[in-house]
Computed example of a mutant assay.
Amino acid sequence: MSREIQVTIDSADPGALAEFWADVLGYQVQSPPPGFDSWDAALDAFGVPPERRNDASGIVDPDGHGPRIFFQRVPEEKKGKNRLHLDVRAAPDLAGEERMTALETECDRLVALGAGRVTRFEPQPPLQGGHIVLTDPEGNEFCLD
């Protein structure tokens, strides 16, 4: 039996991190519940005070194929390397220099959005096609693959 998954990411600023990852993945911030034209209207109706309105945010694949990604506020800062990270498949069908050029172009776009560049790994045939390690605005590592 297969299961749906949701990826949950701890965050200091869920709203901002959700916007970043929506841009990275081509996702969209999840729409408010039916019957509400905005999240503020929904949260007003639910009695959520203004200081708690950035406690969580979610993004969804507009095509409905990828998992929902949920960002939740936590009080502690990130410490150490991620034990789990996302690989953003920016050049899955390319090889060699063409692949690395495509990854560099996407890396430039993501750095402009607030990502940090960490390192580039060159292709090492026969199994590794090369990739670039980045961090999101809160320091979570991910790879352009």
Rank of each mutant, 00 (worst) to 15 (best):
L110R: 12
Q128H: 15
P92L: 04
I132M: 12
C107L: 02
D87R: 06
V7I: 15
A18P: 04
A56I: 12
P75T: 12
E77G: 07
Q28D: 09
V133P: 01
F121A: 12
T119H: 07
G47C: 12
D40H: 06
R73Q: 08
D87G: 04
F36N: 02
H65K: 13
H85K: 03
W21P: 08
M100F: 02
F71R: 00
G80N: 01
T8R: 09
E76P: 00
Q124S: 13
S57C: 15
A41H: 04
I59D: 07
V29G: 01
T135P: 01
T119A: 13
V60L: 11
I69R: 04
I59H: 08
V48P: 04
G47K: 11
S11T: 07
A112T: 10
G58K: 07
R99G: 00
G80A: 02
D61W: 06
P14A: 09
R3M: 14
G96E: 00
P126D: 06
P62N: 10
R53I: 06
Q6T: 14
A95N: 05
T135W: 03
R52S: 13
K81E: 10
F20Y: 01
T135M: 06
I132R: 08
L17N: 09
L103G: 02
T101Y: 03
E4K: 14
D61Y: 08
V133C: 13
L134C: 11
T8G: 03
N54A: 09
A18S: 10
N140Q: 08
Q128Y: 15
R109I: 06
A112L: 03
D37L: 05
V74Y: 00
P49M: 02
G15C: 14
A90P: 01
G15N: 15
I9Y: 04
P50W: 05
D61P: 01
L17I: 05
E122W: 04
I69S: 02
W39L: 09
D145P: 06
P67M: 03
A41R: 09
V24D: 08
P75E: 13
L86F: 05
N82L: 04
G66H: 07
G96N: 01
L84Y: 09
M1G: 13
F142D: 04
M1Y: 02
G96T: 01
P50V: 08
A112C: 12
K79P: 00
